[in-house]
Design a protein around this nucleic acid. Structure first.
Length: 561
RNA sequence: GCGCCUGUAGCUCAGUCGGAUAGAGCAACUGCCUUCUAAGCAGUAGGUCGAGCGUUCGAGUCGCCCCAGGCGUGCCA
């Protein structure tokens, strides 16, 4: 588990610190400087890594930044380190250039770690549940679910690579208000199709899928339900449609390469009595009260703006009450160290109240984390398309996957950080040309694969890293590619700690770009002995890391295009 | 009204902890395949980082205040 970016940073910081301490011991600088900060150089002509240490500490040390930098450079010994050069530039920046030793050890480490390259250990084996999509089984999934699906799935994968034990869960609301509404909508369509004139529920689901389910039922079981009791009719229709809807969701998600460790059904919580038990616990702890015939949770006692209803005056539980029990189950029963809920931004009002309810149950609310996903704006022919599940005008995940390849869809929906709005241009997505950057990345992989095959046919196999002379890889395109390869573990780490797997998309594009530039700048085939092997190894290593990173995204790495 | 998110090139978006000349893709324009895949590469052009004030050696980044857009603010989920 190596992180050469971090290793280089730490070493450079240590070199500067020790030079600073020498200067202090010699009485040339005052004490009290802050630890040096190291960052990647913006421009390769400055070197690979730089530090603004001299600028940041100039005030405390009472000397000019350039004087400080000069003193430090005099006291740094670079022999045997990851750096070949340390210079001063501009107002007093310290610029360091990476040495062949660093590049050599990097290639060896990537080879040694194989598929495990990129893994880091921020999770330290702690368990985390990622709950995502959790769409209501009242109809097909939408474009919004398409984004949430990829976000949750790739976030889970990133956390896995970052050293967490990961569990993917889908919470299925298979009972309650929405299901009741589904029953009334189905009933109305059913009766209408059987020739009974009834009004459609005003707030019902207008989608074609409802009518289709009614048709299916009639085809299988006829119109006998017309004469059944209202309650029996609705329940029969729900029992008919709900499993089909759930199975459809599961199949669509699988087609989208998303598989869950568990579908958790809301009814399980009710059957086991866990919801009632949880409410009793809250009440026993004095966190509830009754008013207007309803039972309320004192969320304001935990910093919320207002209290929330747990049990409505009609006796039914709110979704909130059930969700509290569900989250208690995640922590208390199943013992997850951390739980991440991937939610649409339209649910952001819930975050505080969930945190307060966990606190009320004696569960550390910081163990519950939310990833709020800004909504998808769908455009078609330059116009914003309004989508609504209720009115049935949504474009479904199923429709989407009929039109565009899974690889492109997964890349597209993971292209933006979760807190950015994502614009989804239907006309663009349908086009399968190079405008989608996923092809740029896949092309790099295919190109390398082809190259390796061609050279293998000519008897050139990439040698072990230990035999490579990295001092032959001197071109800027080669150095840049090596640095990009080294950046991978740090990208995984940052994606994990920021809950932002879209970084990996951008990393893939960047790595592919570095390869394409190297490919044009340097020829492998026909290069002299030593150089050929070094470049071939560089190509193979790039191929492996690209495949690795695409694997995080759940995207294929094709050998031919 | 209050809360959360967003505002950077014609379009879609990056920009790490405040750092050097603000980047990428697409679109536009100009070049590059008798030689490892041209779904590629090189180059040109394109910017009041929404506006203003402040903090400091230094602000796209931090603070305040406006403006604009999205979402929320249910005994719906």
């Amino acid at each position: 588990m190596s992180n050469f970016v971090a290793a280089a940073k730490e070493q450079l910081a240590a070199l500067i610190t020790s030079a600073y301490e020498s200067a202090v011991a010699e009485g040339l600088l005052a004490e009290g400087a802050k630890a040096p900060e190291i960052e990647a150089s913006r421009d390769p002509s400055f070197g690979d890594w730089s530090s603004g240490f001299a600028l940041a500490s100039a005030k405390a040390l009472g000397k000019s930044p350039r004087d400080i930098a000069a003193l430090l450079i005099d006291r740094v010994e670079l022999t045997g380190t990851f750096f070949s050069e340390l210079t001063m530039a501009g107002p007093g920046f310290l610029n360091a250039r990476l040495s062949d030793l660093w590049f050599y050890e990097l290639l060896n480490a990537i080879e040694d770690e194989g598929d495990g390259y990129g893994s880091v250990d921020v999770g330290q084996g702690r368990s985390v549940m990622v709950e995502f999509v959790s769409a209501n089984p009242t109809g097909p999934m939408t474009i919004g679910n398409a984004r949430g699906g990829v976000l949750g799935d790739t976030l889970a994968e990133v956390l896995h690579r970052a050293g967490y034990k990961v569990w993917r869960e889908f919470y299925c609301n298979d009972t309650g208000n929405q299901v009741d509404l589904l029953g009334r909508s189905l009933e109305a369509r059913y009766l209408q199709k059987c020739g009974v004139e009834v009004p459609f529920p005003e707030d019902g689901y207008h989608g074609d899928d409802i009518a289709a389910r009614a048709d299916e039922f009639i085809a299988e079981q006829g119109d006998a339900l017309v004469h059944a009791s209202e309650e029996q009719r609705r329940q029969t229709l729900i029992d008919f449609a709900l499993p089909k809807n759930i199975e459809k969701m599961r199949a669509d998600l699988a087609r989208y390469r998303i598989r869950y460790d568990r579908f958790f059904y809301e009814t399980e919580l009710h059957k086991s009595g866990y919801v009632d038990e949880t409410l009793d616990k809250l009440t026993a702890a004095g966190h509830t009260y009754e008013q207007d015939g309803a039972v309320w949770f004192k969320a304001t006692a935990f910093g919320a703006e207002k209290d929330d209803v747990l049990r409505k005056s009609n006796g039914f539980l709110t979704y909130y009450a059930v969700d509290i029990a569900y989250h208690r189950d995640k922590f208390e029963k199943r013992g997850f160290d951390m739980v991440i809920d991937v939610l649409g931004a339209d649910h952001h009002g819930h975050t505080l109240r969930f945190a307060s309810s966990m606190a009320a149950l004696g569960i550390d609310p910081t163990r519950l984390r939310f990833v709020l996903m800004q909504l998808v704006r769908l455009t078609r022919e330059g116009e914003v398309v309004r989508v609504s599940k209720r009115t049935g005008k949504a474009i479904t995940l199923s429709d989407l996957l009929d039109e565009i390849p899974v690889d492109a869809a997964r890349f597209f929906f993971n292209a933006r950080a979760h807190d950015s709005h994502l614009e989804f241009d239907m006309d663009l997505a349908v086009r399968q040309d190079s405008e989608n950057p996923v092809y740029y990345v896949q092309y790099a992989h295919a190109r390398i694969s082809s190259l390796l095959n061609t050279l293998a046919d000519e008897g050139h196999a990439p040698p072990p890293a230990a035999e490579i002379d990295v001092s032959l890889l001197t071109d800027e395109s080669e150095r840049a590619l090596l640095r990009a390869l080294a950046a991978y573990p740090e990208e995984i780490r940052l994606s994990a700690v920021n809950f932002d797997p879209s970084r990996i998309n951008r990393y893939c594009v960047e790595l592919a770009g570095h390869f394409h530039r190297f490919y044009h700048a340097q020829r492998i085939r026909g290069a002299e002995s030593g150089v050929l092997e070094a470049r071939l190894k560089l190509a193979l290593t790039t191929c492996d890391v690209l495949k690795n990173a695409l694997g995080v995204l759940g995207i294929d790495a094709p050998e031919k295009m």
